[in-house]
Computed example of a mutant assay.
Amino acid sequence: MPNAGNAPPAPASTALPASRITVWLRRRIFSSRRDAILSLTVVVLLAAAVWATVPWVLVNATWSGASRADCTQEGACWAFVVTKAPQFIYGFYPPMERWRPNIAFTLLIVGLAWLMVPRIPGKTYAGFFMAVVLPLTTYVLLRGGFTGLPLVPSDQWGGLLLTLILAVSGITFSLPVGVLFALGRRSRLPLIRWFCIGFIELCRGVPFVTVLFMAIVMLPFFLPLGMKPDPLALAVIGIIFYEAAYMAEVVRGGLQALPKGQYEAAMALGFGYWRTMLHIILPQAVRKVVPGVVNTTISLLKNTTLVMVVGLFDLLNIVSAGVSDPLWAGSQAEGYFIVGLVFWLMSFGLSCYSRAIEAGFARAERS
């Protein structure tokens, strides 16, 4: 009978959960003295941060009230956020017509789920829905002015609604425009190549605020006399072309990373330029630049807050307007905390989706 002390250890799959946790801690957290010190330091700092913020955020917070005077001095005044929440979401959109933004939010969620969930088929139709159907439907629905829908000018749109309009429009259209500029920068035709290089370097060399001012202030001078374009439309155009310059450089890096044999194989099969790009080169290049595209997308999302300098009331600007209310003077911390939380959730969601896409590509390459 074998000695119990010399028996082989149980397989990891049959080990107790506590044993697996212990093994994981020893290998990943406390594998050396240095790692143990660093890990304990991080734990202490996180615990101190939680100890300092939780009482202010939750324990001593005030959740209801008609003004700042109803809130305690020791905790957060979430009554300000609860009271101003409709304004933070819809801006100055008429309360009786807010069912229209709600439909637009629903269509956006449906489109994103259709496009981003791998198990849902019809990604080509999902792309068409996000690029054509959703923008047109959202604009017509929100603006109104037909079939009994009251006209709501875009200067009454604001808050999270306006932020999502700017972000989704910029993300949806800047990538295809950036792909065209990336292809143009690698073109053999000198005029097309020089134009694309000049545009990309111009947009990357000036601040985003400058591009917004050029779109809002200077572009109308080049339009026919008496024509007054919508400031929101001009801001969207400025965002698209500014971010397209960065997307172009990201995509160009992916194109340069592909071996020359891919182009030669396509030529050997008799593919033309556009068939080669659409069916062979671009699908491979996009796989290589997913992190860069997502990084640029997150930057675009945060840059939408700069439209406040041209008078558009995005989420950040609408919160600043709410803080200026005399009844809620001193609520800057709570308002800006919500703004930061919303942008962090959106950015973190994009980052998680990017990692999921990269993991899917890695599994596909291994199989």
Rank of each mutant, 00 (worst) to 15 (best):
G5T: 00
A7D: 12
T14C: 03
P17M: 14
R20C: 12
R33E: 09
V43C: 14
A52N: 08
L58Y: 15
G75F: 07
K84H: 03
Y90E: 07
M96N: 13
R100P: 06
L108K: 00
M116K: 00
G122H: 02
A126D: 00
G127A: 06
F128V: 15
T138G: 05
T138Y: 07
V140Y: 13
G144E: 09
S154I: 01
Q156A: 05
T163G: 05
A167H: 03
T172P: 06
S174P: 09
L180G: 04
G184P: 06
R185S: 11
R185N: 05
P190S: 11
L202H: 12
F213Y: 13
V217T: 12
F221G: 11
F222K: 09
L223N: 09
K228W: 11
L234G: 01
I239V: 02
Y242T: 05
A244F: 11
V250G: 07
V251C: 10
G254I: 11
K260C: 01
G272P: 05
Y273C: 01
T276P: 00
M277L: 01
P291H: 10
P291E: 04
L300E: 09
V307N: 04
M308L: 08
V310Q: 09
D314E: 15
L316R: 15
I318F: 09
V323G: 09
Q332R: 13
E334T: 04
G335W: 15
F337A: 14
I338W: 14
G340Y: 07
V342E: 11
L345W: 08
S347P: 02
S367K: 03
